[in-house]
């Protein structure tokens, strides 16, 4: 249904449909509507889709004020400017005040590609995860994004959507049933659990195929919601396989790997390794180049998985 469509187009089409039915929905950009694909909404909704200019702090608190008035505002920027730059506005005006604001950060981690280190958020999940009361969601494909939006709007509270803007490989089909608080079981296995999010899900599937050919049966969970974690699914899988690899397009400090490790060390400790950006800033490069350089390819996952397996008790 969404093949060859960019994630930003899918967002724009979906939110357009939802705006027709729900006049509470507002879309606010900070001079990146062209990049985020939301510019076309302004013709149709001149009052409800607008720009605040390059002023993200004002955008966040303005949205909180609109939410206090009963609106459901979506605010958009590139990931670093939608999170770390406005972290206090998110913490106080949005999260502490429990306002129904949806924050979209586009181009997470290495997907910022040629914008390079300044625009490459390696810390956005870590920043927001430590603020109480924010749901953190990273859609893996267009079907998931489209199915998630109505639930995100229905959920009365702040949600951060970590959005890859371009064409994401299809993981799901039309029959997919989405629950924002439940992880997706993509492949059942018994030897090792791979917990992945975002662009790393596709690499994990490739890695599982390689492992399968070598007789290792990996289980894959798509952890689309990093906060709150689907505790039940993660513990169940760790109990079954006895070892874990996490794969994320984020610093291994503060992101999915940290969240899973924090949970398992307390509830069901098993050998665990984290794949992702190893605590350094990003740089200019294509996604494929940076995946290779930062050891985030399917082959890297295979290597780390074998290492973890050898430590399995």
């Amino acid at each position: 249904m969404y093949e060859n469509m960019e994630m930003r187009q899918i967002f724009c089409e979906s939110i357009d449909r939802l705006m027709q039915e729900d006049e509470r929905i507002i879309v606010i950009d900070a001079d990146l509507a062209r990049g985020n694909g939301t510019l076309s909404l302004r013709e149709k909704y001149p009052q409800r889709a607008f720009d605040v200019g390059v002023a993200e702090q004002n955008m966040a608190a303005l949205a909180a004020g609109m939410a206090a008035y009963g609106c459901v505002p979506f605010i958009l920027s590139f990931t670093p400017f939608a999170t770390r730059r406005i972290c206090d506005q998110i913490a106080i005006s949005i999260a502490y005040a429990k306002r129904n604001v949806k924050i979209i950060g586009s181009d997470p981690g290495i997907t910022a590609e040629l914008n390079g280190g300044t625009h490459m958020s390696v810390e956005d999940i870590g920043v927001l995860r430590s603020i109480p009361g924010i749901v953190i969601f990273e859609p893996v494909d267009g079907i998931q994004l489209a199915k998630a939006l109505p639930q995100i709007i229905a959920y009365d509270g702040p949600v951060y959507i970590r959005l890859f803007r371009k064409i994401a490989p299809a993981i799901f089909n039309d029959s997919y049933k989405f629950n924002i608080f439940k992880a997706d079981m993509l492949k059942e296995g018994k030897d090792i659990s791979i917990f992945a999010s975002g662009i790393m899900v596709d690499e994990s599937i490739k890695a599982a195929d390689i492992l399968q050919s070598e007789g290792i049966n990996a289980e894959i969970l798509n952890i689309h919601t990093i906060k709150p974690l689907d505790i039940e699914a993660i513990i169940k899988s760790a109990r079954k396989t006895g070892c874990v690899v996490t794969c994320e397009n984020h610093n291994v400090i503060g992101g999915l790997g940290s969240a899973v490790a924090e949970l398992l060390i307390q509830e069901f400790p098993v050998p665990l390794k984290t794949i992702g950006i190893q605590d350094h800033f990003g740089e200019v490069g294509s996604i494929n180049y940076l995946k290779k350089k930062y050891k985030m390819t399917a082959e890297d996952i295979v290597k780390v998985a074998k290492d973890v397996l050898s430590n399995k008790i």
Partner: peptide, 16 residues
């Protein structure tokens, strides 16, 4: 509206 971290309340007022 909740306020206390300075500079934010006026933005909230603009939003309202």
């Amino acid at each position: 509206m909740t306020a206390g971290s300075l500079g934010q309340g006026i933005s909230c007022a603009v939003g309202m």
